[in-house]
């Protein structure tokens, strides 16, 4: 088996404040969860390798180092934010299952994000499954994912449920 190739890709975490973007990253990178809320300012950077994945074109295994851009909730759209988005290969859009009334707020983010990175790949995430037993928000999210033509997963940053899967899926799609 050939030595895995190492590549790095930039991934943005998108979503309204408090949906659990930072918590998902923390769970994925450090396997930790914190009940208390610490609001993010600007961008918080971290990275973690996933893989090996199989590159179908070259048939070689690949280790992908994901550079995670955990973005703060953005009040308004300024040029600084465009810089944050610039060159992203993928994005995780996070929605909070317990706050269906905020589901549509990501739409303001996704448009400028796609304008900057038309080729980039998405995964839609419904987070906080440990708090929500209701099926309705899940159905809504599944429909939104179908419209965006991207995969969706339901996660809990608290229990770790499906967190790896989200980043694994995204990495495979970026490859």
């Amino acid at each position: 088996m050939p030595e895995p190739t190492k590549i790095s890709k930039k991934v943005c975490m998108l979503g309204t404040f408090g949906v659990g973007k930072s918590s998902l990253v923390r769970q994925f990178v450090y396997q930790k969860f914190d009940e208390s809320y610490l609001s993010t300012i600007g961008v918080q950077l971290s990275h973690k390798a996933v893989g090996p994945l199989l590159d179908k074109k070259t048939n070689r295994p690949v280790h992908m180092n994901l550079i995670l851009w955990d973005l703060a909730h953005l009040e308004k759209f300024d040029p600084v934010v465009k810089n944050y988005f610039h060159g992203a290969h993928g994005a995780v859009i996070v929605l909070d299952l317990t706050r269906p009334q905020t589901f549509r707020e990501y739409e303001n983010l996704i448009k400028p994000f796609f304008e900057t990175n038309p080729e980039s790949k998405l995964v839609l995430v419904g987070n906080k499954t440990d708090l929500s037993a209701d099926d309705h928000p899940r159905t809504q999210i599944a429909e939104m994912a179908a419209n965006l033509n991207c995969p969706c997963h339901f996660t809990s940053a608290r229990t770790g449920e499906n967190v790896e899967l989200v980043f694994q899926t995204l990495a495979e799609n970026i490859l």
């Binding site: 790095s8 890709k9 930039k10 300012i41 600007g42 961008v43 918080q44 950077l45 971290s46 990275h47 180092n65 550079i67 851009w69 600084v80 810089n83 944050y84 610039h86 060159g87 992203a88 290969h89």
Partner: peptide, 28 residues
């Protein structure tokens, strides 16, 4: 690693097509 994705911007700098490139409020 925060400059991954900004390769084009860096080339512009080296080719003198742009003066500077700035990323604010990063944290780690």
């Amino acid at each position: 690693p925060e400059l991954i994705g900004a390769e084009d911007k860096i080339t512009e700098l080296l080719e003198q097509k742009a003066k500077k490139y700035e990323l604010e409020k990063l944290s780690r």
